[in-house]
């Protein structure tokens, strides 16, 4: 077996196992940490594909950014000893059906697609190319989505500030009360 295959299996196994753990864990911070592992493994896959920019972005944004924010908000709102309730059988059944449906859909799509073998060496994506196409106004340029996302983020930031200013602290729950 080639080395790449082993690594691929390893990463996939990590993604699957930790994804399952993420949704089944009853402690919220552990779930967040399992999610972190899933995201890091995904970026490992990207590294394997030699798609380094996406891998680094995955690490920065998801692992370094979003998970940190999730953990940070968990720190602010919940206490160590807090556990989730067991979900009822109705929920279990419905979520099982939903995830099964999703899984079947993905598997059908993947099996349906003809993966053609290629002898080409994976090429490194040049940073200049990414930078230029991000700011290009050509047909395949990304300047419009880039700007739209910036405006969205700006709106989100302003909203966050407004929420934080208007009685944010008064409504926030201290970790202390859940200590029992």
């Amino acid at each position: 077996m080639a080395f790449n295959q082993i690594m691929f299996i390893l990463f996939s196994a990590m993604i699957i196992v930790f994804s399952v753990l993420t949704v089944t864990s009853r402690k919220i911070l552990r779930a967040a940490i399992y999610l972190l592992f899933v995201l890091v493994s995904t970026s490992g896959l990207y590294f394997m594909l030699n798609y380094q920019f996406l891998a680094a972005v995955q690490l920065t944004l998801y692992a370094g950014g979003i998970v940190v924010l999730i953990i940070f908000s968990i720190l602010l709102t919940s206490h160590l000893s807090k556990k989730f309730e067991h979900s009822g059988w109705k929920k279990n059944i419905f979520s099982a059906i939903a995830s099964l449906a999703g899984a079947i859909l993905s598997i059908i799509t993947i099996l349906d697609y003809k993966f053609s073998a290629t002898s080409e060496v994976a090429k490194e994506v040049d940073m200049r190319l990414i930078g230029k196409s991000l700011l290009s106004v050509d047909y395949d340029g990304y300047v419009l989505p880039f700007e739209v996302i910036s405006i969205l983020l700006l709106a989100a930031m302003i909203a966050a500030i407004v929420v934080a200013k208007n009685g944010g602290p008064a409504k926030a729950q201290s970790p202390l009360i859940n200590q029992k």
Binding site: F53, A56, V57, L59, A63, V68, E124, D126
Partner: peptide, 19 residues
């Protein structure tokens, strides 16, 4: 080829351990 970005990305993960 994105070495700088990679280092920034990875060093950001240390904070998770601290948290």
């Amino acid at each position: 080829n994105i070495g700088v970005l990679y280092v920034i990305a990875v060093s950001a993960m240390g904070v998770i351990g601290v948290l």
